[in-house]
Each structure stands twice: as C-alpha cells, then as structure tokens.
Simulated scan of single mutants.
Amino acid sequence: MSDYQQYIAEKEKIDFFINKGFRIKDVEENLEGSFLVLERNDGKKEISHEETLHIKHADSRKYFASLLIKQQRQEN
C-alpha cells in the first residue's frame, strides 16, 4: 500500500467512527504510532461503546489532532 493510500485508509476509519457519534476519549503514543480510543455513549451512563484504532501515518495523526482540538472547543 502506498503512503497516500495508508493515510486515506486511516482517515476513513477515523471519519467512520466520528460520523457514527464517537468522540475521542484517549490517545496513547508510542514508537509504533498512536492508539486512538473512541467512545460513544447512547444517552445512558451504563451503555458505552469503545473502539481503539492503531494510527501509524503521521498525516493521520495530524488529522485526528485537529479533530480533538475541534472537539475540545465544542465542549467549552
């Protein structure tokens, strides 16, 4: 897979979950990339769904960082 195709594939995964109502809960960085933890609440505290994505491409990490900033602005 080309570098650009890897970026697009990771971006599409992130967009898929964001469009389904998931929000970024946590980010863990290491030498292999980022582990992006997404969470969706269905309006009840006891019902929560989590997904973890392994993001390797630098441009994909920049992309979700911009989404995280936007998310934080909406919360304030």
Rank of each mutant, 00 (worst) to 15 (best):
M1V: 05
S2N: 11
D3A: 08
D3P: 02
D3C: 03
D3E: 12
Y4L: 07
Y4T: 09
Q5K: 07
Q6I: 02
Q6S: 11
Y7A: 03
Y7H: 01
A9M: 00
E10D: 09
E10C: 07
K11Y: 12
K13Q: 13
K13G: 01
I14E: 01
F17R: 00
I18K: 09
N19Y: 04
K20Y: 15
G21N: 07
G21P: 04
K25V: 03
D26K: 10
V27S: 07
E28I: 02
E29S: 15
E29G: 10
E29A: 15
L31V: 07
E32W: 13
E32A: 10
E32I: 01
G33P: 06
G33N: 07
G33M: 05
F35N: 11
L36W: 11
L36T: 05
V37I: 06
E39L: 00
E39V: 03
R40L: 01
D42L: 10
D42F: 15
K44E: 15
E46Q: 10
E46M: 08
E46N: 11
E46C: 04
I47W: 15
I47G: 14
I47A: 14
H49A: 03
E50D: 08
E51A: 02
E51V: 05
E51G: 00
T52Y: 00
I55N: 05
K56P: 03
H57K: 07
H57S: 07
A58Y: 08
R61T: 06
R61F: 09
R61E: 07
F64P: 04
S66W: 11
L67F: 09
L68Y: 14
I69L: 02
K70E: 15
K70N: 14
K70F: 15
Q71N: 11
Q71I: 03
Q72A: 13
Q72Y: 15
Q72K: 09
R73N: 13
Q74M: 14
E75G: 11
E75I: 05
